[in-house]
């Protein structure tokens, strides 16, 4: 904080000399938040970094023994952990692709004069505001092989969704697509409505076809905002826990957060789980970095 320099307001001015100085106010306003985040987010992470080099188990009173990089070495050589990462990657690809297709498609449809457009948009946004865990649970009934309305509506008889190892991950992804396509739609709609009308008019005068117009005008102009949606959803899908944990207990749906949860709170391999948490953390921070770059880029425009 010592390097912080005031530039915007003249602290020597008469106005600012009354009451607390601007620097004091700024520090008073900002430092508590930074401290709070350091104490409750950063300190715990330092704490768990320490444990990640030990064989500590929170379920016993045995003191932790320093084991160096052993946890990391074992985790990175464990084919089962890589399988969890592969499941997570598959989940991310399926659910984010689905969300982009449905969300962007719906936005394209909505980007015109439509009666009750405001109401329809608000209704479409409802799923993403709801609790994943609570609504996800109810999808268990919708997917039920004997009396679920999905099988009834699609005429699938007693098709197994959640109890079927090949289908379960897709079922979770479908629920996720239902919840989060509206998010992609919301952002795409903002991007689409910002495309200047005159570009379309010019294209129409030049007798450009719909494909040309889409790929040369619409997509490039919506791309930055769509990228924000995609990166954000990728990050969230990578961290996913609630939906998969509640809907199924199939080994084929054990995404990395679920593995981490089980390792930490069911198997009580605290030291090892701290190491895995760090591996996950580094991946998430990498995506966050890209995300913030895009956020700032769009903001500047």
């Amino acid at each position: 904080m010592a390097t912080v320099v005031m530039t915007s307001l003249d602290s020597k001015s008469r106005a600012a000399s009354r009451g607390l100085s601007d620097i004091k106010i700024r520090n008073l306003f900002i430092i508590p938040t930074i401290l709070f985040l350091i104490v409750f987010n950063i300190f715990p992470l330092i704490y768990s970094l320490g444990y990640s080099f030990t064989d500590f188990r929170a379920s016993t009173n045995a003191p932790a023994t320093f084991v160096g990089l052993q946890n990391y070495r074992e985790l990175l050589n464990d084919p089962f952990i890589w399988a969890n990462f592969a499941i997570t990657a598959k989940y991310v690809i399926v659910s984010v692709t689905g969300q982009v297709v449905v969300g962007f498609g719906t936005a394209m449809l909505l980007n015109r004069e439509i009666p009750f457009k405001g109401l329809i948009t608000t209704l479409l946004l409802l799923p993403m505001m709801l609790s994943m865990a609570v609504v996800g649970l109810f999808w268990k009934l919708l997917y039920d092989p004997s009396f679920g309305i999905i099988n009834y509506a699609l005429g699938l008889g007693s098709f197994e969704w959640l109890a079927n190892p090949d289908m379960a991950l897709y079922a979770v992804a479908i629920t996720d697509i239902w919840m989060w396509s509206p998010f992609v739609m919301l952002l795409s709609l903002a991007g689409l409505s910002a495309v200047p009308r005159h570009l379309y008019e010019a294209a129409a005068i030049d007798r450009a076809g719909p494909f040309y117009t889409f790929f040369r005008i619409t997509l490039p102009l919506v791309a930055p905002i769509l990228m924000i949606a995609i990166i954000f959803r990728t990050m969230e899908a990578f961290k996913t826990f609630d939906l998969a944990y509640i809907l199924t207990s199939q080994p084929t749906t054990e995404v990395i957060s679920i593995r981490l949860y089980k390792m930490a709170f069911q198997e009580w391999q605290t030291g090892r789980s701290c190491a895995l948490a760090y591996i996950v953390l580094i991946m998430v921070l990498a995506i966050t970095n890209i995300y913030v770059k895009y956020l700032n880029r769009v903001k500047e425009r």
Partner: peptide
Amino acid sequence: FFILSTRMLPPVVVAIPMFL
């Protein structure tokens, strides 16, 4: 960026040390 990044931490990652 630091402030925003705390939001992105996966809950289970933070939960392990917080639990202890």
